[in-house]
Nucleic acid binder design. Structure first.
Lengths: 207, 207
DNA sequence: TAATGCTAGTGTCCACGTTCACAAGTAAAG
DNA sequence: CTTTACTTGTGAACGTGGACACTAGCATTA
């Protein structure tokens, strides 16, 4: 299996596995079995083993997976072994929440630059970073930032994305509820939290 | 096709179609073709037609779909035709952002009750709602709320979920990065924004 | 050393979802 | 009325991913 194409669904699950490992490493067991990990995450053991097998198994039969080694492997596959510097554009309610969200750090992300167009906010310092004028966004080139997070209103999202691509951003996490199209070289993931809420009633009994 | 089981993936896409319709209705064209809608959303026309066909086509050949009728149909399928009242638990950075997020209203959601455990926040009014003591959460029964949004730290999420289920909540949108298990009668959708960010580098060129 | 119990890795089958091509239907123009 | 242009609805082929069973490997115990 070692030389097969990796299913997209597998890649989608890897961060979940990583989360499970990072958060349950307090138990500081040296090894963890697929059954145990599956139980923690609420998925199937064979799903986990299958997923890992695509990358060439790193477990030992009869024992399980070495937690530390497995963690490193997944991080390497996801390219999280090198740290990533991100920029956040738009410090509204959502942007501020993202900035304060502790979850990014455990994956090695660092929000190193923040932009907004509100003159009252520009210059303010939040945590370690100072909010800069969005007009200066094009000057981001050379600051070693490879990720962009868009948290601006719908109407401006595409425009911001274009600038981000221009300054060499390779990946965009978009929180605006709209499509963004950019060069195929740049990966865009859009999160629309309202859309997820919108399908919830479908699964609920009609009461 | 009318009597087939509806694929989960189709249900996942319906809110997207609805979003496209709601946001492009400014053009106030009476009808929209699958090709046009697909273009706006960045998906395939035949995918859209196939999805709609599961519910028994509501378009007319040669013309397209009547925007107003289609919108109503999708809302009905997703059970968004009746409004939903939601409660938000946890008014930290993320909770506050959710509360201020305008995207919920267009789907007919109303955040009608808000809870927190921070005594400084309790009693504060944000928009139309007043933050209540989370200790009073069990008294939510009878207030006609059927959705719960969890935005509390990891450790408390399961506990809050249990209470929500007790008071009769039928669906939960969980923003805590952990698994929540509840009665099978209750649908849980978990959003972990850090997890989505975590798979972004995988798709990026190694630079 | 032999036996037992547990766990990873993987080939195979199956179910689901996507793509596509085409028939059927509508409207507008000639 | 006929023709043309367009669009929906759907059966069928195709591809992908998930479920599972089974083999092989490791460790522990006797």
């Amino acid at each position: 299996m070692r030389y097969h194409k990796i299913p997209d669904e597998t890649v989608r699950r890897l961060p979940l596995y990583l989360r499970g490992l990072l958060f349950s490493s307090q138990d500081l067991q040296e090894n963890i079995s697929s059954r145990k990990l599956a139980e923690v995450l609420g998925v199937n053991p064979w799903q986990i083993r299958k997923d890992f097998s695509y990358f060439g198994g790193f477990g030992t039969p009869g024992v399980g997976y070495n937690v530390e080694k497995l963690t490193k492997q997944i991080k390497k596959i996801l390219k999280l072994d090198i740290g990533h510097r991100a920029t956040l554009v738009g410090v509204g309610n959502l942007g501020a929440a993202i900035l304060a969200y502790p979850g990014f750090k455990i994956y090695g992300f660092d929000i190193a630059a923040v932009f907004d167009n509100n003159s009252k906010k520009i210059g303010q310092k939040i945590g370690d970073v100072t909010i800069e004028d969005v007009a200066k966004l094009p000057m981001l080139k050379g600051r070693q930032i490879d990720l962009g997070i868009i948290a601006v209103p719908r109407g401006s999202a595409q425009e911001i994305a274009n600038i981000l691509v221009d300054v060499g951003i390779k990946g965009i996490l978009n929180f605006s509820p709209c499509r963004i199209d950019v060069s195929k070289k740049v990966k865009v993931i859009t999160i629309d939290i309202a859309m997820d809420l919108a399908r919830l009633p479908y699964y609920m009994p009609s009461s």
